[in-house]
């Protein structure tokens, strides 16, 4: 142990910690401290306004995490992910395959397809809010008031907003596929459809996995579109987990439990993605 320690030079160690200090302080203050305090708060029942607390122990975790509030929030979050992720994946592949060809002026189309990167979630939500306004919009539908359609209405701007990102990521994957592979497939008599499904998609599967991970994270984090378009309504039909957490920022006890629930869900989803999808994707070196 003492020999190990001698390998470090005091000045270098001091410099290293000086370099790490700014980040460490921020991470400790705004990431770890709030998180561990929330683990503690979950055992107290708080009145709205956070003024009085009553110790209830772990029973609050059990009650909330098995209760309807958490279950509904989780269902809506998963539903939101199911609306946005497959659509983003399919449309991203469609646009990228369409724009990955040696045509004159293809750069213009690539710029147009990636242009939705310029809008933010708030911007695209405002655009769609009025596009689908039942009184004055182009598509006059009352989805906001329909409990079955409200969440889909909130997902639409995300689907559009994600087009640019999905396109850019898939295109980068396509551009990394060696031209000789496609040429060989063409000489073997593979048609465009078989080239796409048998060769291109398997080859870019790591990129597609990355895209799925990013889109799922975005889906679980969705907030602005829901606040702007439905504000959780009608009657909580579009309240996702994050929206419910935001609503409880005055109610530390229950909010903390919901947050820990979200943390657990994120962990499970991240784990599942890598275990389930990692097996099916093709990495070039194997």
């Amino acid at each position: 142990m003492s020999r190990l320690r001698q390998r470090y030079r005091a000045r270098e160690v001091a410099l290293a910690f000086a370099c790490l200090a700014p980040s460490l302080i921020i991470f400790a203050t705004f990431f770890y401290l709030p998180f561990f305090r929330m683990l503690d708060w979950g055992r107290y029942k708080s009145q709205r306004g956070g003024l009085s607390y009553r110790y209830v122990g772990l029973s609050q975790y059990r009650d909330i995490l098995t209760g309807p509030d958490f279950r509904d929030g989780l269902t809506h979050s998963v539903q939101f992910v199911l609306y946005t992720v497959p659509a983003g994946l399919v449309l991203g592949v469609l646009l990228a395959v369409a724009a990955h060809r040696p045509l004159r002026g293809i750069k213009v189309f690539q710029a147009i397809f990636s242009s939705t990167l310029a809008s933010s979630v708030a911007v695209s939500s405002v655009l769609f809010l009025f596009l689908f306004n039942p009184a004055v919009g182009f598509f006059q539908v009352a989805w906001k008031e329909d409990p079955d359609m409200a969440l889909f209405a909130a997902a639409l701007p995300s689907i559009w907003q994600n087009l640019g990102l999905a396109f850019v990521i898939v295109l980068a994957g396509l551009q990394a596929v060696p031209e000789e592979v496609m040429e060989a497939a063409r000489l073997d008599g593979y048609g465009p459809w078989r080239r796409l499904t048998r060769i291109t998609l398997p080859l870019i599967s790591p990129v597609l996995l990355f895209l799925v991970v990013v889109l799922v994270i975005f889906g679980f984090q969705a907030f602005a579109q829901i606040q702007i378009i439905t504000n959780g309504g009608p009657a909580g039909a579009s309240e996702t987990l994050v929206f419910k957490i935001f609503r409880e920022t005055q109610n530390y006890g229950a909010g903390a439990v919901l947050s820990v629930g979200l943390f657990a869900v994120t962990l499970v989803v991240t784990f599942l993605q890598f275990v389930l999808l990692e097996r099916r994707v093709h990495y070039g070196d194997e």
Binding site: S23, F27, F30, F31, Y32, F35, M38, A256, S259, L262
Partner: peptide, 20 residues
């Protein structure tokens, strides 16, 4: 410890951060 902060996005720590 740096990389683990990626598992603590703002959505998860929101309540604690707002309180802070």
């Amino acid at each position: 410890m740096f990389m683990a902060t990626l598992l603590l996005p703002l959505e998860v720590t929101l309540i604690g951060n707002v309180a802070l």
